Amino acid sequence: MTGRATDARRAAVLGAPIAHSLSPVLHRAAYDELGLMDWSYDRFETDEAALPGFFGELGPEWAGLSLTMPLKRAVIPLLDEISETARSVEAVNTVVFTEDGRRVGDNTDIPGIVAALREHGIQQVESAAILGAGATASSALAALSRVCSGEVVVYVRSAARAAEMREWGDRLDVEVRTEDWADAGDALRMPLVVATTPAGTTDALATAVPERPATLFDVLYEPWPTELAARWSMFGGAVVSGLDLLVHQAVLQVEQMTGITPAPLDAMRKAGEQALAAR
């Protein structure tokens, strides 16, 4: 384990709504496992309008912030620097405050998706599908640029969303083809399917799961399993959950904020599983 000296430090997750966030559970479990007894991690309900004021009140004890919707883009003007990964999707979910007072933004969702897939044995696929075209879909597409060697087919509900995803494909150097959501059942025969839609959206697709499905990555973790994930598992397909993503992106956040590597993946995952089971 490598790391730096640690005095009392603070970190938190910001967003709106935020009460449901598992981030405090995961980060606090990491601090316990790493022996960082003087570290704290909280949650604050914060929208775009309140974000600059929140930043203005932060003292030198702050080590970092996790950001969820709707702040991932709104935070960028408040930062001194953002990583190439964050810039690629214009979304920051991690802010680290350096010892010299700089505010550095990063996106751990993208490498988190890649790490979760690799943990389940997915190193590379020839093609993939994305269900949905919201904020998470662009991060999924960026992750697939590292995993998928060929075409990514995105299933969307509107021509505007289709155009946005094709633009993201051009920016990320990914071959993107868009199809209408009415044909989303066709996606389920692909080597890798990434579902990025809100709860309930893919339930109607469960009956279209093929007899021998490949891999489904469903970014939801509550409620879990989704109807699609349950049916996928029943037919013997591999399923990667939103909790897998949440844990892997949080591991990277802990490492960046504390300077200690590796972060305790297993302890963080166990804490997340226990918290979800208790809900």
Rank of each mutant, 00 (worst) to 15 (best):
A116L: 05
R87S: 15
R157L: 06
E84T: 15
E179Q: 15
F97M: 03
P52C: 05
E179T: 04
V96C: 04
A230L: 12
A187S: 12
F217N: 11
A250N: 00
A129D: 06
A182I: 10
D109W: 01
L192A: 10
T226Y: 04
G15L: 06
L228Q: 05
A135C: 03
A162V: 02
L14V: 09
S83I: 00
L36K: 03
L188F: 09
G56S: 09
F217T: 14
V247N: 01
G53E: 07
A199W: 05
P111G: 05
M69C: 05
M69S: 10
A199L: 06
A116F: 06
D109Q: 06
E164F: 11
L34N: 05
A229L: 05
P262Q: 06
E45G: 10
W168E: 10
T196A: 06
V194W: 14
E227F: 09
W181C: 06
V13A: 02
V219R: 05
V154A: 10
S23L: 06
Q274P: 07
A182H: 11
D218A: 07
E179W: 15
G121A: 15
E33D: 08
D32C: 03
A29S: 08
V240A: 04
T108V: 10
D7F: 09
P77K: 07
G242F: 08
L79D: 06
E167N: 11
D183M: 10
P213C: 03
F55C: 03
H27T: 04
G134I: 07
M190H: 15
L276K: 05
F55H: 03
R4C: 07
E175L: 13
R102V: 01
S233R: 14
E57V: 13
A277T: 02
G105D: 02
V219E: 02
A140F: 14
V194T: 08
D109I: 01
Y41H: 15
E84V: 12
S21K: 12
A140V: 11
A128Y: 13
R231F: 15
A29V: 02
A135D: 02
E45L: 15
L276Y: 09
A163P: 04
L188W: 03
L51D: 03
N93V: 00
V114R: 05
I110R: 01
S145I: 00
A115M: 10
G272M: 07
L205Q: 06
W181S: 04
P17S: 04
A115H: 10
G150A: 07
A19R: 15
T98I: 00
E211A: 13
D32R: 13
Q123G: 09
E211N: 11
A143R: 11
G200Y: 04
N107C: 02
D266K: 12
W232D: 03
R231Y: 14
I130Q: 10
G121D: 15
R177N: 11
P24S: 04
D203K: 09
L36M: 08
V13I: 13
W168I: 05
A63G: 11
H248Q: 11
T108L: 10
R189M: 08
R87G: 13
G112I: 03
R161A: 11
R177T: 15
T196C: 12
N107H: 03
M69H: 13
R189Y: 11
S21W: 15
G272Y: 08
A29D: 06
I130P: 09
L117R: 14
C148P: 09
M69W: 09
